[in-house]
């Protein structure tokens, strides 16, 4: 969090994340080219460009799969939350690798003195009816690249505030269109030029794994959202001591919004589970220096009243808590955002 906008709000975790990401990308691309060149040395310059095309293209698809897998993985197991924290850098890096892949394709056409035909190839409308043998699969790659461009270009916090969260979120759902287009781009490209069976097998295994993770995460969320029955407007949370110190238990009344009940030492507090920044799952975060810290982007809210510390003005809705026969209960009706409602445990 900052009182103004910077290009990137660097911290030690982000630097470490980006360094590991860069190292893995370099390792994959370097390894791919080295192994492929050793197994089948390219005969000419066009062969080397083709090799780079495949290395960067496959790397971009793997990265895009990782971008989409991180969300459901973190939902299924909190150990993956550190990957979620800087996912936007992974997304921007994915776009840059995909852009390099597209650049090598243009380089290939320039080398073959065929650049004018590239645009013609994409606008040969009759070929779009010749599925899959003659379908211009590069168009699908272009659609995927454009989707990633829009995501990357609007990934800065400024755009979230400018476009408003609902519109920003709707735009960023376009990544699923991009992923589908990228999968089809690779599948058709492989079917039309390289008939090695390993490519479609790996492609659909990856696509299937990402889809399965989304289904599992959605089922878990649906089970949470089914909620528990509240009595007289109060919902049982459990024994306060069972909530790990500095962490939260997420509960939901039947048909209601999720509530995160945090324990910070002998203080308990209940807030809305939706971060005011990007609707991130606040309850999956932890308490740091008396502030609830959202696991997505580190937005902070004071435990006692759900208010962001000055000079920030974001607020979370809070909920009343009570102890009844040793059990902690939360009132299911939210209080106005920023209302002090924490409870001191005896």
């Amino acid at each position: 969090m900052s009182a103004g906008f910077q290009a990137v709000q660097w911290n030690a975790a982000k630097i470490r994340y980006d360094a590991i990401l860069l190292g893995l990308v370099a390792l994959y691309i370097g390894g791919f080219i080295a192994v492929a060149a050793a197994l089948s040395p390219p005969a000419d310059v066009a062969g080397w460009i083709d090799l780079r095309l495949k290395a960067f293209g496959s790397c971009a698809f793997l990265m895009l799969s990782a971008v989409l897998a991180i969300g459901p993985l973190a939902r299924l197991n909190p150990r993956f939350l550190p990957l979620l924290y800087n996912r936007r850098h992974l997304g921007v890096a994915t776009f840059l690798v995909a852009l390099a892949h597209a650049g090598f394709m243009v380089e290939w056409y320039i080398l073959e003195s065929d650049i004018a035909n590239l645009a013609g190839e994409l606008t040969s409308w009759a070929d779009y009816l010749n599925f899959p043998a003659g379908f211009p699969f590069k168009t699908l790659g272009l659609i995927a690249l454009l989707c990633m461009l829009v995501m990357a270009a609007t990934s800065h916090d400024y755009w979230l505030a400018f476009l408003t969260p609902p519109l920003w979120k709707a735009i960023h759902m376009g990544i699923y269109l991009g992923y589908g287009a990228a999968a089809l781009h690779i599948a058709l490209g492989a079917m039309q030029s390289n008939r090695h069976p390993l490519i479609p097998i790996l492609l659909f295994a990856l696509f299937g794994a990402v889809t399965l993770l989304h289904i599992l995460a959605a089922r878990k969320a649906a089970a949470q959202d089914a909620g528990d029955a509240a009595q007289d407007g109060w919902l049982q949370v459990g024994a306060a001591g069972d909530i790990p110190d500095g962490r939260a238990r997420i509960v939901a009344p039947a048909g209601g919004e999720r509530i995160a009940v945090f324990r910070d030492g002998n203080i308990v507090a209940a807030v809305s589970n939706l971060c005011a920044h990007q609707n991130g799952p606040v309850g999956e975060g932890r308490v740091v220096d008396g502030c609830i810290t959202c696991p997505w982007h580190g937005y902070e809210y004071r435990v006692e009243d759900g208010c962001a510390p000055p000079p920030f003005t974001e607020k979370l809705a809070t909920y009343r808590l009570r102890l009844r026969d040793g059990w902690l209960e939360v009132q299911t009706t939210p209080l106005p955002p920023g209302t002090p409602a924490s409870l001191m445990l005896p």
């Binding site: 900052s2 009182a3 906008f5 910077q6 290009a7 005011a276 937005y299």
Partner: peptide, 16 residues
């Protein structure tokens, strides 16, 4: 600025 919806002159670096 981040966290404040009211339009004011927000400090913004060249990089941003």
């Amino acid at each position: 600025p981040p966290g404040n919806e009211k339009p004011v002159h927000t400090p913004m670096t060249l990089g941003a």
